[in-house]
Design a protein around this nucleic acid. Structure first.
Lengths: 227, 227
DNA sequence: CGCTGCGTTGAGCTTCTTCAACGATCGTGG
DNA sequence: CCACGATCGTTGAAGAAGCTCAACGCAGCG
């Protein structure tokens, strides 16, 4: 597979020895998915977990009426569906490739064995899942305690953080998907972006957003201000 | 401390050797909290994690206006704030004793060392955090995709599950706290319980709830029916 | 007795969703 | 090259769900 190079770029596998990379690459399987293709569905038997090699994958839930709530959007180097490894049960959500993606698959059993033998791998896994939990806690807080403008503002500031504090953001998602990530619908998101623009908080051009008043957004994100 | 007996009743520590219990009890500290007492606040330095020995503890977030969202309610044997151990950062939420409680505290560093040396402890930890993640995912789904009646119905069915499928439930929380756990407010919860009673779905008497039509509740929980 | 915490009920209002229509963009096939 | 459909985003009007505010009942307890 000549994949140890790829594996070494994955944060989850940081600090492993050359030999451990070899063990990993031995159990990994490489999968290709087209844009829009389902990787697994909620309720499927959780046979293992995945790491995005390249492309983009969303993890989401669906309501009976078809409304979608995105839980995560993962890019290169990020693992997903680890939960299935340790609970040994079904996948608790759906996964779908948002772009043409290469994905590494690690079968449950083999990976568990590796973890048992490699404490540092276990520690990495724990750290990764801790961050995930923290993110979920913030998402619950946002959904329950903030209104949509606040959630949007928080998300934009989060993106600015990740893009080196530049005020010109590139959305890595179509707006409709962003709405689903924020727990709302495209119509509402559109209206709120319009209102924010009108108030001079930001500037929208396609999927480029320029933040004009991050302090104002900050206030919104903390619930100290309304639109 | 003569606590190895107590430790052995904690699921997280299942399958550890006698010697490992001793190591654990050596680093554990025993704490007492009165009802209503704060254990830690969001933003406090995360110096370690906890296990409820007896009593009841809630983990929650607060909005600026003072609205509360409960993330967890933990009883005897359940660990909390593990996230702080592995991220090494601040506690991401508040913790408060709902009843007079005895709590074991495990300092971060010492516990990390134990985990590194005990693969089975690491595995237990991973399993525990996986379940936590799954629960959070369901909570996000509920908040975003279900209305309050659906969330309530799901919660009641969950309680029935835990109480051996008996249709007579004892709420382990005051109704106001239950509202906060469901992501709503006491007024709304009260109204919905009234409506459910009126429709013959259940019967309320103080904090005892009798389920009369679990199929109907099931439909509500899945969004296949309205009140 | 009166206080305090908890729960309930009513009226009005805000926010968000639903439904519908329309505009823009893009890729494909004629 | 243009027409067409599909996807995506925007906008308007109406409706529903849940929140706010206020008042009240009721129990436990000093």
């Amino acid at each position: 597979m000549q994949e140890t190079a790829l594996l070494s770029t994955i944060p989850l596998f940081n600090g492993l020895s050359e030999q451990q990379y070899t063990s990993l690459s031995r159990i990994a399987r490489e999968l290709q998915f087209e844009r829009g293709q389902t990787i697994f569905s909620e309720g499927d038997a959780g046979k293992g977990f995945f790491v995005v090699a390249n492309g983009q994958v969303k993890i989401y839930k669906l309501s009976i009426e078809g409304k979608e709530q995105i839980l995560h959007v993962f890019g290169p180097g990020e693992p997903f569906a680890e939960v299935a490894v340790f609970t040994g049960s079904d996948y608790p959500a759906h996964a779908l490739a948002l772009k043409k993606s290469k994905v590494l698959f690690f079968p449950r059993k083999a990976f568990m064995d590796l973890i048992g033998a490699n404490p540092s791998l276990a520690m990495n896994m724990l750290a990764s899942m801790s961050l995930r939990l923290k993110k979920f806690a913030n998402m619950i807080e946002a959904l329950s305690l903030k209104e949509v403008p606040g959630r949007l503002a928080a998300h934009l500031l989060y993106l600015r953080e990740r893009q080196n504090h530049t005020d010109t953001l590139q959305l890595n998602l179509p707006k409709g998907q962003l709405a689903s990530l924020l727990g709302t619908i495209p119509e509402t998101l559109s209206r709120i972006l319009a209102k924010m623009t009108q108030q001079g908080l930001l500037l929208v051009d396609g999927n480029t957003i320029t933040l004009l008043d991050s302090d104002g957004l900050e206030d919104l994100a903390c619930g100290e201000r309304r639109l």
